[in-house]
Write a protein that binds this DNA or RNA. Sequence first.
DNA 1: CGCGAATTCCCACATTATGGGGAACGCTAA
DNA 2: TTAGCGTTCCCCATAATGTGGGAATTCGCG
Lengths: 278, 278
Amino acid sequence: MRDIGESEAPATPSSQVARRPDAPGAGSLARMLDVLDMFSATRPVLRVDDLQARLGYSKSTAYRYVKTLCDAGLLAQAAQGRYTLGPRVVELERLMRIADPLLQAGEAVLPALAAEQPNSMVLLCSLYRDKVLCVHREGPEAIDSGGHSVSILRARGLPLPLFQGAASLAILAHLPTPRIRALFAARGAEMAAAGLGADWAEVRQRLASIRRDGHVATAGRFNRHLAAVSVPVLSRDGSQVSGSLTRIMAIGDYVPGDHGRIVASLQAGAKQLSTRLP
Amino acid sequence: MRDIGESEAPATPSSQVARRPDAPGAGSLARMLDVLDMFSATRPVLRVDDLQARLGYSKSTAYRYVKTLCDAGLLAQAAQGRYTLGPRVVELERLMRIADPLLQAGEAVLPALAAEQPNSMVLLCSLYRDKVLCVHREGPEAIDSGGHSVSILRARGLPLPLFQGAASLAILAHLPTPRIRALFAARGAEMAAAGLGADWAEVRQRLASIRRDGHVATAGRFNRHLAAVSVPVLSRDGSQVSGSLTRIMAIGDYVPGDHGRIVASLQAGAKQLSTRLP
DNA sequence: CGCGAATTCCCACATTATGGGGAACGCTAA
DNA sequence: TTAGCGTTCCCCATAATGTGGGAATTCGCG
């Protein structure tokens, strides 16, 4: 049984993709927040010594940062000398859950969608500035793909690569052109590496075709045993993308004959979501 | 239909209970983190002007804080001039979910417990330093209490008052005595206000009796229509409290005859949880 | 394309973070 | 309970860096 997203590398916090460990002289405010980047799925509790060593702080500074973050509730001491992420994180996430209209719409719309097709799950993803996160999942936790059981446990909060995977591409393709252009200027290399296209013309064309189709389908890209079909979720007035709605299934279950039905079902769901959005 | 915990006052972030808005001169590191306290369920998106006004920053400083927090992903701009909590919060919360042994144990043990009694829910709460949070809920979202439907939506992340309610008291009573003593010294007034006792002797006695009983029961304290029974969840070796396990039911359903059965069931659950804990 | 608002840039100033050392604290074990 | 040790906070001189007024720039909306 393989899990997705459970095996993050020891220290690959997503923010480091765009922001390298701040050099000394980048502002102590930002430097303090780097402490949060040190936590990962494989290293959920840290000792102050670790921070001191891995971020190059003095003992005093390390303790001051930790104390400040603790006072704010973002960190909490688990035991002597051991610190974990703190209760404020859970509390703040709850605020986001309460306030997020996309999630609320998803909780209302997704169950019916998930029930339409067995051995498949439905993902609702959201765009934050230039980051795509899975916001909600409905359906089974694991998908059986020819003997392999592939599971996406704890989908909420799973970060998705911006330039890869159906869920991200559905969003990307529907961003306003100037934003895409800016993204290409800043991270064209990543786009190329992800196979989106070598130059601007190619990227533009690929995204335009996705926009024209109204959906993206990938097979075996995110995971060898899975296929995914995704459609954008637009705001009510259709002026902007709010996220994407994705069906994930075993790669063997994704047969051409079903394609039309799957897309239509997702598009219907996306429309329902839109009407519940601001 | 009444909801619990959904109607937080405009600006009563739980941290402000113990920490007032930092006066200028309390450290810019802590001051920046105060920005997070400005978000609430009723005010999930803020304008920079609001921060400027409500925290007394200059325009430059407000923007610098916002930019720093945005770069860290803790904030994200929703629209022009509007900022919300950011994707990093959801991502970090997921790390906590993955790493939290109490939650994992709860997901395995609670469903059976919840199924034992209809029209009741089971709450798993956890202690962080000196803060109690609901970590997981199993069972129906709402409880019917004589025509009133009382719901605890989105329980995870719901902050609980430390000195009130069965769930908190079950934990409090099992803290090491020196910690309780320190808590009383620091926040004795709050304890008294919560009805825990006027002086140290009284508080000590009350907590000792809870410890002796092995459970706490309250009726109508947290919510007029609800009753709650809670037992502590200890670490595997029994050396410390990890949290508490609570059954919440309609106040009319809490009849003396059932008391023994309810407590026994919770204690069995707590024991199961303990064996799955470090 | 052009207006107004949002956001960043710039720079002199002093508030405030820094870090070394040591004391007090709080665990853990005997 | 007491010893013993690692953790944590305090103190303070130094200078790094956050601060804020205003200008410059960008951004988004009409």
